[in-house]
Design a protein around this nucleic acid. Sequence first.
DNA 1: TCATTAGTTGAACGTGTGTTCAACTATTAT
DNA 2: ATAATAGTTGAACACACGTTCAACTAATGA
Lengths: 120, 120
Amino acid sequence: MSRNEFFCDCNIIHKESVDEVLKKMPEENTLLNLASLYKLIGDTTRCKILFALDQKEMCVCDLANVLNMTKSSISHQLASLRKNKIVKCKKIGKEVYYSLDDDHIVKLFEIGLEHIKHLK
Amino acid sequence: MSRNEFFCDCNIIHKESVDEVLKKMPEENTLLNLASLYKLIGDTTRCKILFALDQKEMCVCDLANVLNMTKSSISHQLASLRKNKIVKCKKIGKEVYYSLDDDHIVKLFEIGLEHIKHLK
DNA sequence: TCATTAGTTGAACGTGTGTTCAACTATTAT
DNA sequence: ATAATAGTTGAACACACGTTCAACTAATGA
């Protein structure tokens, strides 16, 4: 199916620009994964967890105390972070110790903080 | 109110770690702004818009054609991006031209893409 | 002046998502 | 063995959020 058949409620104003941009657009799957990544760190709870783990390896109870939340909600969030390879964990006795599994996240935080500072 | 009075459904396992991490944790407002930023780019539609604008300044109709969506939904998303100083716009005649207002976003995309590539 | 088109906006709708709750497993200590 | 505690998990709930729809403004051109 050609792109030109697609529905849109307005006329193309600058067809050349549209075509050129479309040609260089990342593929759908890449965009989905990218958006998922940002959505994952786009939550205060998960941000706090990641900032904490950037300082120290911690167990679920530690994190629950740092964030002042229940073990259950922390555990749920850790599960989605784990599923997306952003944190990793190791079990020692009854406790499960979590740590960052990816140094890109810290870089994302650095740039994010710069952006915020730049706004003021 | 001291931090120790807070409710949590488990015992502190490593009090020193918890205290130390709490001391270095960014303040609540910073974390809120940071999470908002990532949430904002954590959506496929807005990601596509930003990738497009990174290539070329575009009007709403152009973007609607690139994303194959209605002007209305594009306009809604542009409004929140504008509100958060991520895109800027200028009106020329009937058309409104949008462009990126912040180079941090492009850096965030670069790192995000690296992260995705790294996962495979 | 009137019709047309670009763009915005608010309300409504349906979906996605974070927290809570309760039940569960696994490990340790008595 | 049994109790206690760390952690996980699925369902339910409430709220947040993206898209649609309809009504609107502003600018252009006939």
